[in-house]
Deep mutational scan, measured.
Amino acid sequence: MEVRTIKVFTTVDNINLHTQVVDMSMTYGQQFGPTYLDGADVTKIKPHNSHEGKTFYVLPNDDTLRVEAFEYYHTTDPSFLGRYMSALNHTKKWKYPQVNGLTSIKWADNNCYLATALLTLQQIELKFNPPALQDAYYRARAGEAANFCALILAYCNKTVGELGDVRETMSYLFQHANLDSCKRVLNVVCKTCGQQQTTLKGVEAVMYMGTLSYEQFKKGVQIPCTCGKQATKYLVQQESPFVMMSAPPAQYELKHGTFTCASEYTGNYQCGHYKHITSKETLYCIDGALLTKSSEYKGPITDVFYKENSYTTTIK
């Protein structure tokens, strides 16, 4: 009895394709271990004539594949690729409408935090270190965002349907971005203890939790000093293409032309909904596939993004 075979390709990165001759009487799992086709788990399936010449994702289970996976995804987590594939199996079914010149995501599976993050990423200057993220990001900007969303979920250790947080998501993504040249110098002034300067680099240099107003941050924000008295913390120097200011959701007025974009969060910790506000020729609110415009805006804002380049204080 002759062994019926077909020729397929296996890959971990969709760049390096490895030619395989597979036995049609055995499952993919018996031949390769966990195997995925377009995100779908085909591990328990036997090869079919229609699979001839198709590319299958496999887990990096030998040295060659491990090197290829690390170079593309910059992670050695053995569960990463499987999590990416199972997320992709959902995100490829989502709709990605162009809204006001940006790629958004039609609401499904509690994905409003991903839509808000995706919209924000198209408006701030950011370059990702893992080629996987950078490639998928370019495709997302062009309207094909399924891979990018699935990668975000995998890097953030999230599953489809789980509630997510924009600030946490951005923080994970910033860790995989090139923020080497970003720098922030802060000064804390206390009447009792004097003053202390701190220099922050990388992710810490672009994120701040405690106030939404970048102007206020430049002037000074009140913080408790270690001595128990009130101290003032203010920005001395900022070198970065953008800054992200966050605070627990509270009524906040966004003035046209003073910011790049913002995240609105309605609801409580267990259950809520994100919308995205962007400042173009007027203010726009993007909620999944829905767009509304207004000249002014007041609502429960939790993150505001500002364009920056270089700032030095005039406070002496």
Rank of each mutant, 00 (worst) to 15 (best):
V3F: 12
K7T: 12
V8K: 13
T11F: 07
D13N: 05
D13A: 07
N14D: 12
Q20Y: 09
Q20I: 10
V22H: 08
M24T: 13
S25L: 12
S25W: 13
Q30F: 07
Q31S: 13
G39E: 11
A40Q: 14
T43W: 03
K46A: 13
E52F: 11
K54L: 14
F56S: 04
T64N: 13
R66S: 13
V67P: 08
A69Y: 15
A69S: 11
E71K: 12
T76Q: 15
T76Y: 11
F80L: 06
L81K: 04
G82P: 13
S86W: 15
L88P: 08
L88D: 04
K95N: 15
V99I: 14
T103H: 05
S104V: 08
I105C: 00
W107S: 07
D109S: 04
N110K: 04
N110T: 04
Y113N: 02
A115Y: 07
A117E: 00
L118M: 04
E125F: 05
Q134H: 12
Y137P: 06
Y138R: 14
Y138P: 06
A145W: 07
A145H: 03
A145T: 03
A145S: 06
A146V: 06
I152V: 10
I152D: 04
L153P: 06
Y155A: 05
Y155D: 07
T159S: 14
V160G: 03
L163E: 04
D165P: 00
F174H: 06
A177C: 14
C182G: 06
N187Y: 06
V189W: 07
K191A: 13
T192D: 12
T192C: 09
T192H: 09
C193M: 04
C193P: 06
G194W: 02
T198Q: 14
V203W: 11
M207S: 05
S213H: 01
Y214Q: 01
F217R: 03
K218P: 01
K218Y: 05
K218S: 01
K219P: 02
V221Y: 03
T226D: 12
T232W: 10
V236I: 10
E239K: 11
P241K: 10
F242V: 00
M244W: 02
S246W: 01
A247E: 00
A247I: 07
A250N: 10
K255F: 06
E264D: 03
Y269Q: 15
Y269F: 11
C271F: 11
C271R: 15
G272P: 09
H273C: 04
H276L: 03
I277Y: 02
I286K: 02
A289R: 03
L290C: 12
K293I: 12
S294F: 15
K298Y: 10
G299Q: 00
I301H: 01
I301G: 00
T302F: 00
Y306T: 01
E308Q: 05
T314K: 15
I315F: 15
